[in-house]
Nucleic acid binder design. Sequence first.
DNA 1: TAAGGAATGAAAGATATATTTCATATAGTC
DNA 2: GACTATATGAAATATATCTTTCATTCCTTA
Lengths: 304, 304
Amino acid sequence: MLLIHLIPKGPPLSLPIKTRLSNALKEGTKADKAIASYMSGALADLPFETAASIAKKVGVSEATVGRFCRSIGYTSFKNLKDHLKGDIADYPWLMSDRLKELQKSAAAGDAHLTRGMELEIAAVVSVYECARMPEWPRVVKRLASANNIHVAGFQTERGIAQYFANQMQYVRDGVSLVDLAGGNFAEVLASGKDSCLLIFEARRYSRLAKVLAQEAQATGIPVTLVTDPFCDWGHDVADEVFAVPTQFNQFWDSTAQMASLCNLLINSVFMELGSDVEDRLSRFAELYGRFTGHVGDPVAQVAK
Amino acid sequence: MLLIHLIPKGPPLSLPIKTRLSNALKEGTKADKAIASYMSGALADLPFETAASIAKKVGVSEATVGRFCRSIGYTSFKNLKDHLKGDIADYPWLMSDRLKELQKSAAAGDAHLTRGMELEIAAVVSVYECARMPEWPRVVKRLASANNIHVAGFQTERGIAQYFANQMQYVRDGVSLVDLAGGNFAEVLASGKDSCLLIFEARRYSRLAKVLAQEAQATGIPVTLVTDPFCDWGHDVADEVFAVPTQFNQFWDSTAQMASLCNLLINSVFMELGSDVEDRLSRFAELYGRFTGHVGDPVAQVAK
DNA sequence: TAAGGAATGAAAGATATATTTCATATAGTC
DNA sequence: GACTATATGAAATATATCTTTCATTCCTTA
């Protein structure tokens, strides 16, 4: 990168922005690549960004963003945005445009897929409805205060359970993923008074989930169940049941949106714990070193 | 119009912008109407405009544009632009009563949450856009035909990787989750010519993902990377990169929507494999007995 | 058509955003 | 490993953008 400012350096004439970005992706400096990479991945968001907001996200300085824009041929970030408008005028920024675009291409190919997307969006809405249910705060309080949290998921839901457990472990101690290695659920059932259990279940693949819930409840451990809308036994064996839609026009059910619920739940617990958890995250940050300096990681987020 | 500034006057919270504009078009003052009219006609250009630029076009003063925005419920023109991003609410299938209900209760409680939901919905759209990218069919073909599929995810993404692997295992043979137990990636790198690698990564928490990708590519194994939009090294070490949004107004990033991409990918592979996989699933169904008779499980779905 | 209230624009003030400078860090070269 | 050139970030500066104040205009209504 040159030091002479003010003069756009890059490809002098109007190449499309995408081309410029992918050139920078190959030839640029480290920071350049980072910026170019983010920009090309989030083209649709660019109009809403500022040099500073991008800088923060990719972890470089505001100045560098400005310099980068000059290095690929614009005079400034603002200038880049201006060109964005005309340069690829048909690129959709507005969600409604993006949806139209998808529907258009669906007409050619598979409308099936677009219908699936609509269902999946509806599922997201459902998930956020869960967060407004009267039992939600109760679950959150329990997950924040209990001594032990056991998280269970079998078959295809094991991944979801693990996802939840892994993240929750950042937020608090005493979170464990229920393991079947021992052949029974001793770890859960013997874990003392102040424990609770969160089960992810769907498709009735696994009888285990029901058995576990029953036994836990018999032992006096509160049970929260995240399942699909077809589960008929949930309310009998769980203190709270959250139903997440799973049918999105795909060849079989998808429990993907349970992951969204996971994060929502974790976020609520984080809020509940308040500053306690911040200390914890700072300690983690030191531990891992590599956390620092990136927005979007716990420390940076908590700090703000 | 009131003279009290600072307090947004209009419909208190999250009605779609179009609705607000058309209300203003009926009820507003002369200047309001002019602005509303221009804005609704040029929604797609708004991100590039400033209060001043609109003022000039419409023939009012800068101040009036600001006041107008406040009168329809935003705190400023900039605030209006912010809401434009990810504003999906005027899509008929989203105008479900449930969504309206949520938005209403958002007025009472946390608009924050509803805003997060909108962002998450936008992420779903992004995911489905991935499925229309030119590299998508290539990845699908590879995942359908390769001898071995290695799936990797570290730290918080391990759960996602597991989720994908577990489901993919129903669809085809030779799917394995990369394990770090051995301390290296021998299992992947020594797995022969016809292998491929799918990595879930985010937040730069894990250097491992990059190392793995590099080594795999050096060995001639095709690498597909699913990551967040902030990954700056993806394009260097992966044959295909899919960026999934991760920031939903929560205290840290959420990679939940990667799970949605997982299912989409699995579904595509299923389609690619066609009837082969149906046989496989039937065999599974017999094996597990308990599958049968339930809507939403593989057999029932495939049958229909 | 005069009076009062609301709406508006001009300009000053406040804030946000971008650029430049300069000191430091980094990468490449011998 | 020292030298050079480039790249980078922090802080200062400049610029753009938005908000507020206040005087004026416009509208309504008696």
